[in-house]
């Protein structure tokens, strides 16, 4: 699996759709990549007094049609790729429903 395998897999559906429309190449260029992904390491105090750290990401995929939106997932298998893929789906979902 490459670093962006999941997102690249998800983008297959975008290419399929683009084949049915006369879309300016600028549009696909913009939607192929996440605009901004912030990665942080959160550090908290555990109940036993120890400190433990956790990786977290926040992705703003595309904000052309309005503020970005997206669920916060707490899962041991989460990755940056998954976060960006979910953010891509959210961008498309808001366009399907015509939400800003």
């Amino acid at each position: 699996m490459t670093e962006h395998a999941m997102l690249e897999h998800a983008l297959i559906r975008l290419d399929d759709a683009a084949a049915h429309l006369e879309i300016d190449p600028d549009v696909i260029e913009k939607l192929k990549f996440a605009r901004e992904t912030t990665k942080v390491r959160l550090m908290i105090r555990m109940d036993d007094g120890s400190r433990k750290s956790f990786l977290a990401w926040r992705c703003r995929y595309d904000d052309t049609r309005g503020p970005t939106k997206g669920g916060i997932r707490f899962h041991p298998d989460s990755t940056a790729d998954e976060v960006e893929t979910l953010a891509f789906w959210m961008t498309v979902k808001c366009a399907v429903m015509n939400l800003p």
Partner: peptide, 9 residues
């Protein structure tokens, strides 16, 4: 700017 919501867990 960016509005979070619930997801898995």
């Amino acid at each position: 700017r960016d509005i979070p919501a619930p997801d898995v867990y």
